[in-house]
Nucleic acid binder design. Structure first.
Lengths: 157, 157
DNA sequence: CCCATATCGTTCGTGTACGTACGATGACAC
DNA sequence: GTGTCATCGTACGTACACGAACGATATGGG
């Protein structure tokens, strides 16, 4: 017992002074979020039904389906994307003919975005797969844990 | 009660058949992970002590600090990065003089990576701020919830 | 020994994601 | 009205993340 204290003279790198656990990258929230997000994206890509649609594109299409018409800036706020990022996402969706735009008659700064007929058809199809993608991502957890995780995540956003 | 059934002929978009809740993007695990990861990255960037070090670079440096010398491929596996991604991360770290490399004497395919003196000094400084970054990210939750979240996340990776 | 197979690192292309800076427009105070 | 300030969309640069393809090197079976 006493020798235990004596040995402390040369602490290993991973030692934890005080009561806090050792600081390990693998236990940090940022690291875990990055890894979990990677896995979720991978499952999304293989399960949503169109390998060319990314998660951010999907959420943008879904929001446009919900609201019919939105300014680019507002859409960005609704799906949590920087306006510069939004610009690239919208450009690609327009290039593919999934989204259309027209100037806002009441505010010359704004561009109003909406789904094309093709965009509506696609998002309708993809949203059928949405629940299965979420289910697969959460599969390692039981029902209560799944709910807990969603709740905890939404509270740290 | 009976009229309720009759009305079902024209369900709104957000209707949920059966017992499942309506499918909303904001409640999906992938969406929440993306947003949470965004916030964590933002807190990291402003709190780690060097705005030019990214989360992936930080975890790479920390792992090299732990293992002294690693092949690029193995480092990538340890920090959960694609080898193509790893290549870019390592290139930038070498350009900044934080990481050094030498050919593996026993296997000509491998490159052994290690921290330079400057890299060691920097990672030592940054790791002092690591706990505060994690604490800030988890601040909206109490101690038990924080533990739960880390546990749930590690189980879906 | 030699060939098939696997691994390692690189390169290229695409798509997020963000910071910064810029011009154009709108809103408001004066 | 005119000037100031905020907002909207754009442009550019950097960094992650992944798939695909490639050359070089190891390795195991025959």
């Amino acid at each position: 017992m006493r020798s235990n204290v004596a040995k402390k003279q040369h602490e290993p790198k991973t030692a934890s002074s005080a009561a806090s656990r050792p600081y390990r990258i693998e236990d940090q929230i940022g690291y875990l979020l990055r890894r979990a997000h990677q896995r979720a994206s991978s499952i999304f890509q293989s399960g949503i039904g169109d390998p060319n649609i990314t998660p951010t594109q999907y959420s943008s299409l879904a929001k446009l389906d919900e609201y019919t018409e939105l300014s680019q800036n507002l859409l960005g706020r609704l799906v949590g994307m920087d306006k510069a990022t939004m610009q690239g996402v919208v450009r690609r969706l327009k290039e593919r003919g999934l989204v259309d735009s027209r100037p806002d008659p009441g505010d010359a700064r704004r561009t109003l975005l909406s789904l094309t007929t093709e965009g509506q058809k696609l998002v309708g199809k993809l949203m059928l797969n949405g629940p299965a993608v979420s289910r697969e991502t959460l599969k390692p957890l039981n029902a209560q844990e799944q709910k807990q995780l969603l709740d905890l995540l939404s509270r740290i956003i």
